[in-house]
């Protein structure tokens, strides 16, 4: 009994000292479960996120834009890979995690259930969605679980490139022809509120947040991160000459930050439930890729088995 108490004490003192918890350390079962859920959701988001952006690779309007986008989508896949590996250090298997994604049991970031309708959406996704993701990921570099933190440090470096590339697309459009400007404003109009939802529900309605803060998995609350994002993004929109689609957006001198409208949380819960514009398409695309690839994976396994037998026979 005293042993269990010691283990928990040791775990808590690591958190207090801001030390990392490593895979072989003792950890409370709920901490482990919370992390597997969070890291795998994050991995799934990277993999699903390849779809709306991959949607524009064949139609990117310049050679450079095509190369940048192709490299970016590849990076997202790479991030998915690091994150699945980080989740595996907690005892989850990739097959099991992917299975949960493919059956619709596991969640991923709801933002990827919105469609990329025009080329400007590729700019807006980079600028806004990656911009919001970075807020979260910068915080997670200091998360208490070592492998997750280290994965985040690598990912953040690449994400900040992506955000700059997205903003560069927005610059070309905003300072381009009338039609391009309209395209840029339309993309901002459609992506603004969904992006604000990426930080999760308001703190008062976010039941998992409090425990995650105690475990130092999360270091800033949803509302704090959302505020930071708005404050930073308003100036960037002004530079582009684009209007943020929120009539209540106003500088508040007292809090040294912007006041802004809450996103439509009903829409948020609806998309999480599976009723977003692309939930069905995203899951179908993932499932199709996985089932079309089954014979490839089987062939690779069968080949490896045969090689092993040949070595044993020799």
């Amino acid at each position: 009994m005293s042993n269990a108490v010691d283990l928990e004490k040791n775990f808590n003192s690591k958190l207090e000292k801001n030390d990392f918890v490593e895979p072989k350390d003792w950890m409370p079962e709920n901490y482990r479960k919370h992390l597997i859920r969070q890291i795998s959701q994050h991995a799934h988001s990277e993999i699903i996120g390849m779809l709306p952006e991959g949607n524009w690779i064949s139609r990117a309007p310049s050679l450079r834009a095509k190369m940048v986008l192709l490299a970016k989508v590849q990076d997202e896949g790479g991030h998915g890979l690091y994150l699945y590996t980080a989740a595996e250090t907690l005892g989850a298997s990739r097959d099991e995690l992917l299975g949960a994604l493919h059956t619709g049991k596991a969640k991923y970031s709801s933002i990827f259930n919105y469609p990329t309708l025009t080329w400007a959406d590729i700019g807006a996704v980079g600028w806004l969605v990656d911009g919001a993701a970075i807020m979260n990921q910068v915080m997670l570099q200091r998360t208490s679980y070592g492998p997750y933190s280290r994965a985040m440090i690598r990912i953040c470096k690449e994400e900040s490139f992506h955000q700059r590339q997205g903003y560069e697309i927005m610059c070309h459009l905003s300072f381009g022809t009338e039609a391009q400007k309209e395209m840029a404003q339309d993309a901002l109009n459609r992506w603004w509120f969904p992006t604000m939802m990426m930080f999760g529900p308001p703190d008062k309605d976010s039941p998992n947040s409090e425990q995650a803060m105690k475990w130092r998995i999360k270091r800033e609350t949803n509302d704090e991160l959302r505020q930071k994002f708005v404050d930073r993004t308003v100036e960037q929109a002004e530079f582009l000459g684009l209007t943020i689609p929120d009539k209540n957006l106003k500088w508040n001198e007292a809090k040294k930050g912007y006041d802004f409208s809450e996103p439509n949380w009903e829409e948020f819960y609806n998309v999480i439930k599976g009723n977003g514009p692309c939930n069905k398409e995203r899951l179908e695309a993932r499932n199709k890729a996985h089932s079309d690839g089954a014979w490839v994976r089987e062939a690779a396994m069968a080949y490896a088995e045969k090689k092993k037998e040949n070595i044993l026979a020799a």
């Binding site: 690779i57 192709l70 989508v73 890979l81 079309d292 089954a294």
Partner: peptide
């Protein structure tokens, strides 16, 4: 690049 995000498994993608 039509295969990107649709590969048979992540490493091969």
């Amino acid at each position: 690049s039509e295969w990107t995000s649709k590969g048979p498994f992540l490493e091969e993608d």
